[in-house]
Amino acid sequence: MELDIRNLVKTFGTTPALHGVDLRVESGELLALLGPSGSGKTTLLRCVAGLEIPSSGQILFGGDDASFKSVQERQIGFVFQHYALFKHLSIADNISYGLRVRPRRRRPTDAAIRARVEELLELIQLPGYGGRYPSQLSGGQRQRVALARALAVEPRVLLLDEPFGALDAKVRKELRLWLRAFHDRTGHTTLFVTHDQEEALDLADRVVVMNAGKVEQVGSPEEIYDRPATPFVFDFIGESVRLDIRIDKGRPFVGQQQVSIPKLPPLLFDGPARLYVRPEHVAFRRDGEGLWATVVSLHRSGSSRRVGFRADGSEALIEALTPADREPPRIGDRAALEIRAAGLFAG
């Protein structure tokens, strides 16, 4: 089932949380909503679920306007950050809750409900756990039960709010791989919220980067990482440094030095601009053509070494990565920097 969000606006009192979000989620897609806290990603998810009432805009489930439907009518599956399992109910009763609350004529028989619970316990790899209580399960197991509970009602869309947020790092990674495999098998249209870019880039078919209630960029993980569309995305995803530069007659300058950046479209304006550069896109040589700079810092970071440069005529620290086993430069050394890729924004 595809999902269409049209010009969604949400304000809490006078505080705007969403400023007109447009988004289309394709059927069977696994989509990540990524952003810092306060970016509106959770609000967006909760509006889709019907847990929050948008101030204006439309939400369509497969072309069918759900904007005025209550959360009960929307047939969504929602997995809460802290699972929200019902502590007084057994695992089986938690999973079957959504089936048991249906009006009698739509409610499956008890036997069918039991069979469905068994099937779901199998699916989340917790067979035989039906009689236990949530307090007897580990965090990762609770998370899977919460997922099974959401899936029991055969939702049209699966919504997950920071699904791994409450887990420790190791379980998080395992569960992430498990969720991807699970999604490939079951194929639900899935929307999940995260503030962890690694999680989003690892797991999702497409990533929606949000900031201050707006969508900054929508794209595949490759597009988001390799071709950030806005300064914010450059800043938020991966590492980058920002250089204040100047465009003069269509050519970029750092201080007095002209820099050459490959694959840059023609520059149609003059004046101040910002250049965003990732460390892995910076190479340095002791001689030859390039942006001349001085080595000002050296740090070992895992298998590589970070070399910090200060370009002549600039105050910004430009970092480059070099393998740790290679002879490092010394502080004070001069080098010519080659910038292999960068993003350039006016202003």
Binding site: S56, E216, T230, F345
Partner: peptide
């Protein structure tokens, strides 16, 4: 900043407020 090579996204939108639906309440 408007990107030099990419489409700038997300102008602040406060326009096009659709007709208010009948009062709804949170679940």
């Amino acid at each position: 900043g408007s990107a030099a090579f990419a489409v700038s996204t997300g102008e602040p939108i406060a326009k096009a407020v659709t007709a208010r639906p009948p009062a709804r309440r949170l679940p």
